[in-house]
């Protein structure tokens, strides 16, 4: 009880301080008119990168190197989870749900896959991108894991495949970045390294951005599927 009241007092003081700080923040419109970066991206973003979706332009062109770091964080998390649960690579359930659920998931699965592919490949035109589409792909493996039991996932989409896909995504991302250096520009430079900008708004626009999205999508899907599978599998130790 004392603990809770002390916590409440601390939180009240903290809340007052934070509210005071937030009240002093500039309004978004004011801040944007002073920010050189935001104004440049809004006015020149499409001609710089060829991508209509400016958030994707920031993620995969202007700050592509940060995105590589972000993907490394997912890799580190997946590696940590695998390390915590390793040695017990055994399926935990073979039965799964009823045959009705199994039939309907097989009807549903291609659509889920295509939705994920759409979100990944149109990341530079519509809201979406590698991270979001990769999560959709990961939910596909989670659905299969729940409906068919983890034995199915163990047999058909085993850990080796997922590791391979994740490494493939990372290597593809780095190779696409190295193309920039090979062409005499910076690491992960896009239009300047000779990738075609295309017509903004079309699937083939944006230079290397769709390819980078695909690489990140593979990496995120494989990483999240690895994390989920390692959490639910049977721990015999």
């Amino acid at each position: 009880m004392i603990r809770k009241s002390v916590a409440l007092v601390i939180l009240a003081i903290l809340g007052l301080l934070v509210m005071g700080g937030l009240a002093e923040l500039p309004l978004p419109a004011e801040r944007m008119s002073e920010s050189v970066t935001s104004r440049h991206i809004l006015s020149e973003g499409v001609s710089d990168t060829g991508a209509v979706n400016l958030v994707t332009a920031v993620l995969f062109d202007y700050r592509g190197f940060d995105t590589l770091g972000e993907a490394t964080v997912i890799f580190a998390a997946a590696a940590g989870v695998v390390l915590l649960f390793f040695r017990h690579d055994l399926p935990t359930s073979r039965l799964g749900l009823s045959s009705l659920a199994k039939r309907s998931i097989m009807v549903l699965a291609p659509f889920v896959f295509v939705t994920g592919l759409y979100i990944v490949m149109f990341g530079h035109v519509t809201p979406g991108g590698g991270f979001q589409g990769g999560v959709v792909w990961a939910t596909l493996t989670i659905l299969l894991c729940i409906v068919y039991g983890t034995a199915f996932e163990w047999r058909f989409i085993n850990t080796r495949t997922k590791t391979l896909l994740e490494s493939l995504g990372a290597i593809a991302f780095i190779l696409l970045g190295l193309v920039g250096i090979y062409r005499g520009d910076f690491f992960l430079s896009n239009i300047a390294a000779g990738f075609r900008a295309g017509v903004p708004g079309e699937l083939t626009s944006g230079g290397a951005i769709p390819l980078l999205n695909l690489a990140i999508g593979l990496k995120v899907a494989a990483g999240l599927a690895l994390i989920f599978y390692n959490m639910v599998k049977k721990d015999v130790g």
Partner: peptide
Amino acid sequence: YADPVPQALTLTAIVI
């Protein structure tokens, strides 16, 4: 348009 830079940061923060 809304400012794209904080939105890209938000995406990073969600992933991490």
